[in-house]
Amino acid sequence: MTQILKLTINGTSQDIPIDDPRATLLDVLRERIGLTGTKKGCDRGQCGACTVLIDGRRINSCLALALSYDGAEITTVEGLAQGDLLHPVQAAFIEADGFQCGYCTPGQIMSAVALIAEGEAGLDPERVREGMSGNLCRCAAYAGITEAVLKATRAMNREDAA
């Protein structure tokens, strides 16, 4: 039986027909509506490549049954930049070389956006490393990732102050 899933994805509200209740949010994003920026690395919540924000909170979308998120607001990596203007976290990842192959990068970036919003890590590198440790990077761009999160935090602090 097809059900209609209402989601607001990157600011646009959508009615998504779901013909299979087993579909995860990750597979709905990737296979049904074509938002393939969010990646599948393990499909069991161990690598973080599928991290998206639901109502501002970071989750592993591979562990989320899509139908249980009816009405939610979802932000994916496709929703961060405004036109050609990159989000400060995206810009910082390029500048600090916070990735190599790029596959874990959407998840790293979504996690970093939420970590900065959570305000728990601030400019403490140890806490940034801890707060980003749910996102695996096999290329091991960790030094760049930590630097990128710190850079972006400083840039966003300046924006807030301005």
Binding site: T36, G37, E78, L80, A91, F93, I94, F99
Partner: peptide, 16 residues
């Protein structure tokens, strides 16, 4: 870099 941080870099399983 821009392709990779915006989710627009296309990996094999992204093709539909």
């Amino acid at each position: 870099g821009v392709l990779k941080v915006t989710g627009r870099a296309t990996y094999a399983a992204d093709n539909r």
